[in-house]
Design a protein around this nucleic acid. Sequence first.
DNA 1: CAAGCCATTGAACCAAAGTACAGTCTCGCG
DNA 2: CGCGAGACTGTACTTTGGTTCAATGGCTTG
Lengths: 206, 206
Amino acid sequence: MRHWFIDKEPNGMASWQEAFPDSLVFGRDHLSRIGTGDEPGVLWFRIRAGEVLTAVFHGVALPPRILFVVLADEPSDSLIEEALASGASGCCNTYAAPDVLRQVALVVENGGLWIGRSLLSSLVGSTSRLLAKNGEKARVDNWCERLSERETQVARLVANGASNREIAEQLFITERTVKAHLSAVFEKLAIRDRLQLSLRINGVSI
Amino acid sequence: MRHWFIDKEPNGMASWQEAFPDSLVFGRDHLSRIGTGDEPGVLWFRIRAGEVLTAVFHGVALPPRILFVVLADEPSDSLIEEALASGASGCCNTYAAPDVLRQVALVVENGGLWIGRSLLSSLVGSTSRLLAKNGEKARVDNWCERLSERETQVARLVANGASNREIAEQLFITERTVKAHLSAVFEKLAIRDRLQLSLRINGVSI
DNA sequence: CAAGCCATTGAACCAAAGTACAGTCTCGCG
DNA sequence: CGCGAGACTGTACTTTGGTTCAATGGCTTG
């Protein structure tokens, strides 16, 4: 099973290579060359923040043996809907850990759909209102709305279990700067540490 | 990983037992007794022709370690929507072959959604994949199975965002003891800190 | 009984996380 | 142009988390 990663620029995340050492990372201009052989595989397509899937993924016809997963910088209901409508087998976080990526691969390779635990609740909320019986409405926690772009980026990595050092390396900044961003995040969201941030972002205890 | 099948009458289909020889079949009156232990598993709930899911599956609160799949005598789009809205990880045909059932289990145990061949093909257009290719048996994460009772208790509190001091106060032990339990948990689960423990327990990244 | 697991704790220690109080640089806006 | 916001960094500090040496007592099981 091959794995191709498509990013805007052909750099990609380190975690991708970690998850699938034999995988290949391409820029979007190489998209048309994926899956020309007979080999089955998974195409991971990164959608950056603010982008619309259908705008960057138009007119691409994948053969049925090539499965397709959207990697979302900023997952949202609409993006998931678009992804599924475009034939994707799933939508997961760009910053997901290697273990998670392999898990996603396992699911989609077996014919399942993967939209993530945390995303599931919001999707369900959009497809049906049945859950709103006890007056509890599935409100979406837009935690990132008050955060700057960089703060959001750091917060996401923290929520996936990364240490300050790892985040620093990933973003090419010092550990000190990571701490600065995090302190700002904690204050803006009125939480006290990274674990609570993770719970908040992952929708465990909203 | 346990499998419970709930039918209107506690007879069930032969194919269910064939798919999971250790599974149990109950009538709907036994539904409330499912998942009272710590054991993780999959609950398969049969919806007969003409029935409405929400009418027969109301007010049932399953713990998060119990996954839930709807077995539909007559699958329809609306039933699938209802199923997902009720927290189901999938919806497949009551009369599905044992191989298919095991495939569904494989997908949902790994956090994926399985919404059946027909809808899947209309969305994804992909054919199903072969099952258990490498003979690798994917299992759900029963993290607490190797932990002692006290370790499990501490781990759960950590996963909810508690600090060591808070845990100590709550359990009437010293902070030192909390640390001891946590160190044991980290080693047994092969993880490095409390954030990863939280992700593991909360099913964000298995 | 001996062996082993479990719960508990202490002292000391190191590493990571987070805070306080700075500063530089860039960029957009009125 | 001045001003504010955001990205970035430094030094120093406190707190928290986690490990490494122990040790004690209860409990079950062969």
